[in-house]
């Protein structure tokens, strides 16, 4: 816990007297507002370089939801000098989508970058409509639909890379869930960089080493307005339960989340991706031409289920 009156670690080293407002136990750092902002942006920059995500010459597309992670990331990327535009997917979830779209649009105007919008109602159907006919949890169906349109639109719009705001807590929760069920196919693909191949555009996660709290603090310190309430479909989501469990572990043993995630990337991910492992062949969906493991991709099947016409060719 940060004791009142603690001096900022960086200020202290420079003989300055600024008080810390943030304590990062896993880094043993107490920071003032200004040095926390610098620390966060440096961490993003270092992660981009460490995993060779993209360069300042690349035209990148940030998946923007209106939440703290995507907006903080977009803000940091622009401040760091990257050419980052945004893509907002309007999920059609009542007030939640209306508010998050407005927030995203106004943030795009603030940083003077283009925000592309995909409206699911026009493309396939809203998430509430999809949820009533899909046989899987809302968040899972929503994730598949978002990934599909992110990939498709980024290619159509000529971007080289999709950048998402998944943070360390998100990655730990997913890794934990996949480990609980030993879902090897998912574990094999859990890496902060997914290279461009077989019709999939390059996808990267520059916040994979920053926590959800760090991202929220950065948003507050940078005066970023973000959607503060939760998507109504996320109530009871397993990812929230896992995050609460991990928060307890982290509190008892600071650094556990980073250790679990980075240990996986360094020690387990390479084992799972050795060349002699069988990989399921990727085809092209016969309807929309997007990558698919089957003749017809999941999204086109969903469209058929929703009694809509097959995807536009």
């Amino acid at each position: 816990m940060l004791k009142k009156g603690t001096r900022c670690t960086i200020c202290k080293s420079k003989n300055l007297k600024d008080k810390a407002v943030v304590f990062l136990p896993h880094h043993r750092l107490a920071l003032c507002k200004e040095h926390f902002i610098n620390w966060f942006e440096n961490r993003v920059e270092k992660t981009i370089k460490e995993f060779k995500m993209f360069s300042k010459e690349d035209k990148i597309l940030v998946a923007v939801s209106g939440g703290k992670d995507s907006l903080s990331l977009w803000n940091a990327l622009i401040k760091l000098g990257y050419q980052a535009d945004g893509l907002y997917i309007d999920l059609g979830i009542g007030e939640y989508s209306k508010d998050s779209k407005e927030i995203s649009l106004s943030f795009g105007e603030r940083i003077r970058r283009k925000l592309h919008i995909v409206t699911l109602e026009k493309e396939i159907g809203t998430i509430p409509q999809i949820n009533s006919s899909a046989n899987k949890p809302a968040c899972s169906a929503c994730g598949s639909v978002k990934r599909y349109y992110m990939n498709k639109k980024a290619k159509e719009l000529g971007y080289s890379t999709i950048v998402t705001g998944h943070n360390l807590d998100d990655e730990v929760a997913v890794l934990f869930g996949n480990t609980l069920s030993w879902d090897i196919d998912y574990l094999k693909r859990q890496y902060p960089v997914l290279k461009e191949e077989n019709g999939f555009i390059k996808k990267v996660k520059p916040l994979c080493k920053t926590t959800e709290k760090e991202s929220a603090l950065y948003a507050v310190f940078s005066n970023i307005e973000y959607i503060e309430y939760e998507c109504p479909f996320s109530q009871g989501a397993s990812s929230i339960r896992y995050k609460e469990i991990w928060s307890q572990i982290e509190q008892q043993s600071p650094g556990s989340k980073l250790r679990f995630y980075l240990g996986f990337l360094k020690k387990v991910y390479p084992l799972l991706n050795q060349e002699n492992q069988d990989t399921k062949a990727i085809k092209q969906c016969i309807l929309c031409k997007e990558p698919s493991f089957n003749d017809i991709c999941g999204i086109c099947k969903l469209k058929q289920k929703l009694h809509k016409a097959p995807a536009k060719l």
Binding site: L2, K4, V21, V22, K68, G143, V220, F221, E228
Partner: peptide
């Protein structure tokens, strides 16, 4: 943003941020 030990008065404008989001 204030440290956990910060004293709060009735007249303060208080916002609580919960960083956990799911889905």
């Amino acid at each position: 943003v204030v440290p956990e030990e910060e004293l709060i008065n009735e007249t303060d404008d208080i916002k609580v941020v919960n960083a956990i989001s799911g889905g």
